[in-house]
């Protein structure tokens, strides 16, 4: 249980470990994109953690990085095909961001730092915890950026029509992502390190 909670707050991959920020900045323009990305990351992270934990004693230490990458990219591709075939609506929304999970360093970092040293059950919990921590952070960013930048949440107008028409365009552009993540990190630092 400790491992599970750990990933959500104390070692939140985005706001505390600051890993894999690239996709976080890129997909947090709307809540829907952010949530879809989060789900895909939870799937890949948990699966790769399980497999890597299972084969950890068999993998020679010189080869661990290439092997981890192969395992991760296999799951990402499986995820990509499956989504495309059976969840075309979700896939349509996420598009290019799904294959980009391969280069998300949270997943490699957890493989290296956690799954290759812990039991399968602990690795599952860690994968879920970190994955959910990632999802919460991205969705929070998505909500803030979408609300301020487009005046909507999940495509529904909030605050009012006049705000929607004159929203803070900057927030859905890349600089908005940097601003929001900076404020979230500052808040997290104050709250967690107290």
């Amino acid at each position: 249980m400790k491992h599970f909670i750990n990933g959500i707050i104390k070692e939140n991959p985005v706001l505390v470990l600051m890993l894999g920020l690239c996709p976080v900045l890129a997909v947090s323009g709307t809540v829907r994109d952010a949530a879809g990305m989060g789900v895909a990351v939870i799937f890949v992270l948990t699966c790769s953690n399980i497999v890597i934990s299972l084969i950890k004693n068999w993998v020679p230490s010189q080869l661990r990085i290439p092997i981890f990458i192969i395992v991760i990219s296999t799951f990402v591709t499986i995820n990509d095909y499956t989504m495309q075939a059976y969840f075309p609506e979700l896939y349509k929304v996420l598009g290019v961001f799904v294959p980009l999970i391969v280069v998300n360093c949270i997943i490699l970092a957890r493989a290296e730092a956690f799954a290759s040293r812990h039991s399968v059950s602990a690795s599952i919990l860690d994968g879920l915890g970190i994955g959910i921590g990632f999802t919460l952070a991205v969705v929070a960013m998505g909500a803030i950026r979408e609300a301020l930048g487009s005046g909507t949440i999940l495509g529904k107008t909030i605050i009012g029509e006049s705000f929607r028409e004159n929203s803070v365009l900057l927030m859905i552009l890349p600089p908005g992502a940097f601003l929001v993540i900076a404020f979230l990190m500052a808040g997290m630092n104050k709250w967690v390190k107290k």
């Binding site: 020679p60 290439p66 499956t82 075939a85």
Partner: peptide, 28 residues
């Protein structure tokens, strides 16, 4: 020995992908 191990992993991964590809491609 290292090369063999890497080969094994690649073969398993390729096999898994081929399986998923065959199943999903007609649907796509």
């Amino acid at each position: 020995k290292l090369a063999i191990k890497l080969l094994i992993i690649c073969v398993i991964s390729a096999g898994a992908l081929a399986l998923v590809y065959n199943k999903t491609q007609p649907v796509i």
